[in-house]
C-alpha cells in the first residue's frame, strides 16, 4: 500500500473514530458532578496535549536527523510534524482557559504547567515565524531544526511541572469511572488517528512542494 492509500485509510479511520468519540462524549459519558458539562472538554483537551507532545518528539528526532545527515527529506518531515503539533498545542491552550473559566472562575493562572505550556507554544511560534519570513532555504532549515530541538526540552518540563512544583488548578492524578474511562480511550484513539492523518497529508504536501522547487531550480 502506497502513502496515498495509507493516508486515505487513516482519514477514514479518523472520521469513524471521531464520530464515535463525539457520540460517547455527549451521549454516553456521564456529566461530572462538581464541574458539570464543561468537564467534557477533557476528552479532547488531554488527547490533544498528548498528540502534541508525541508530534513534538517526532519533530525533535527529524530535526536531529536533518542536522546529522544533511538530508532535506528529514526537514520536510520535521516541518510537517511540527505544524500539526502546533495545531494540537493551540487547541490545548484555547480549550484550557475556557474550561478553567467555568471550573475555577479564571481564564488564566500563572502556574507552572500553564506557563511552561505557553512558553512551548511561543517557541513553536518562533519556529513558524522563522520559516515564514526567512528567505535563505538551507540556513532557515538548519536554524528551525535547532529551535525545534531546544523547544522539545520544554515538553518534559510541561509534563512534570505538577510533580516538581505543584499546581493550583491541575490535579496530580485523575480517577475516572468506567464510562468516562472508555470515552477517554476512544477519544484518545480518535485524536491520534486524526493527528496521524493530518501529519501524513501535511508530509505529502511538503514533499510535493519540495519536488516543485527542485524542478524550478534544475534547468
Amino acid at each position: 500500500m502506497n502513502l496515498r492509500n495509507w493516508t486515505r485509510a487513516l482519514w477514514a479511520l479518523a472520521v469513524a473514530l471521531n464520530g464515535a468519540a463525539l457520540y460517547m462524549v455527549f451521549f454516553y459519558a456521564p456529566v461530572e458532578m462538581q464541574m458539570g458539562a464543561v468537564q467534557k472538554i477533557f476528552y479532547y483537551h488531554v488527547p490533544s496535549a498528548i498528540s502534541g507532545y508525541v508530534l513534538m518528539f517526532l519533530a525533535f528526532v527529524f530535526s536531529v536527523l536533518y542536522l546529522w545527515k544533511d538530508d532535506p527529506s528529514y526537514d520536510v518531515l520535521a516541518h510537517a510534524t511540527a505544524e500539526v503539533a502546533f495545531l494540537f498545542i493551540t487547541i490545548v491552550l484555547i480549550t484550557g482557559p475556557i474550561w478553567g473559566r467555568s471550573a475555577w472562575g479564571k481564564w488564566w493562572v500563572w502556574e507552572p504547567r500553564l506557563t511552561s505550556a505557553l512558553i512551548l507554544w511561543l517557541m513553536y511560534s518562533a519556529y513558524f515565524l522563522l520559516r515564514l519570513f526567512s528567505r535563505h532555504e538551507v540556513r532557515t532549515a538548519r536554524i528551525a531544526a535547532v529551535v525545534a530541538i531546544i523547544a522539545f526540552f520544554d515538553v518534559p518540563i510541561v509534563h512534570m511541572a505538577i510533580t516538581w512544583w505543584g499546581s493550583i488548578v491541575h490535579p496530580k492524578k485523575v480517577v475516572l469511572e468506567p464510562a468516562m474511562r472508555q470515552t477517554f480511550f476512544v477519544s484518545m484513539a480518535a485524536v491520534f488517528a486524526l493527528a496521524g492523518a493530518l501529519t501524513l497529508t501535511r508530509w505529502a504536501v511538503g514533499r510535493a512542494e519540495e519536488r516543485r522547487l527542485a524542478q524550478e531550480v534544475s534547468p
Binding site: 464541574m35 458539570g36 458539562a37 464543561v38 468537564q39 467534557k40 472538554i41 479532547y44 483537551h45 480549550t95 475556557i98 474550561w99 473559566r101 467555568s102 471550573a103
Partner: peptide, 10 residues
C-alpha cells in the same frame, strides 16, 4: 450553567 462553556470548547 456550564454547558455553554463546553459548547465554546468544542
Amino acid at each position: 450553567d456550564t454547558t455553554g462553556y463546553a459548547r465554546a470548547g468544542y
